[in-house]
């Protein structure tokens, strides 16, 4: 074994050791960085909603349990046809004398419904609507099969329930505020409220030239066709 090769090998070995040590130290540094992040999180406010005591206010377009008005329904069965699984059960008989359908029962099984909202969209008489109710848990899946009486009940609103602390959802919060707990309830949400939008639209239509408004209206009609 001659010395230059041995020296070379030695220096390579020491290089490797140095590299190894550097890697180990950098791994330790990353670990400490991660620990700092976790530690930092411990000082923050909990972002969770304490569910049975606090509830989020569902947004306006929330697709919850379906509400149904028996008196408006004409038993046309459109809802059944548009439903992806033909779910609503429309129980009617033909009255021979008046030659009219007579509705006897109507039911939707929420154990099967996917809350797609097709039935609500297409009902010609608007007797179906989606509510904000989502607490449908039950001990027996058959009790999820709502008949027309159950479907006709209105849900209790989170905001009027005295036992519940209503919390605003993210979309209802003012700009830059992330946590509903730390917000003043009088603050209004980011963007315009529906009535403000309404006012604004009225102003616009007054100030805008007539033909523009008409053209917009025509467009609306076209899409309706």
């Amino acid at each position: 074994m001659n010395s230059p090769i041995a020296g070379n090998q030695m220096s390579r070995f020491f290089q490797q050791v140095a590299e190894y040590t550097r890697n180990a130290i950098s791994a330790g540094k990353y670990l400490i960085q991660g620990l700092a992040v976790t530690f930092d999180h411990m000082g923050r406010r909990p972002i969770t909603v304490q569910y049975p005591y606090e509830k989020l206010i569902p947004s306006e377009r929330y697709r919850g349990r379906i509400h149904y008005e028996f008196d408006k329904c004409i038993a046309c069965e459109v809802c059944v046809r548009v439903c992806p699984i033909n779910l609503p059960v429309v129980d009617w008989v033909m009255n021979k004398e008046t030659k009219k359908k007579e509705l006897r029962n109507y039911s939707i099984d929420f154990g099967v419904c996917i809350f797609c909202g097709n039935c609500v969209e297409y009902c010609p008489t608007n007797c179906l609507s989606m509510t904000e109710e989502y607490e449908l848990a039950s001990f027996d899946r058959h009790s999820l099969n709502f008949d027309n009486v159950a479907l006709g009940r209105l849900p209790t609103s989170v905001t009027t329930d005295k036992s519940v602390q209503p919390l605003r959802e993210f979309s209802y919060l003012p700009k830059t505020i992330m946590d509903p707990h730390e917000m003043d309830p009088t603050n209004s949400r980011a963007g315009k409220l529906p009535e403000e939008v309404m006012d604004w639209m009225k102003q616009e239509s007054e100030s805008a030239p007539k033909d523009l408004v008409e053209s917009i209206n025509n467009q609306d009609k076209k899409t309706e066709k």
């Binding site: 976790t38 999180h41 411990m42 923050r44 406010r45 909990p46 972002i47 969770t48 304490q50």
Partner: peptide, 10 residues
């Protein structure tokens, strides 16, 4: 408790 705090829970 500490796990909850680290995950911003209660």
């Amino acid at each position: 408790k500490i796990s909850a705090a680290a995950q911003q829970r209660i």
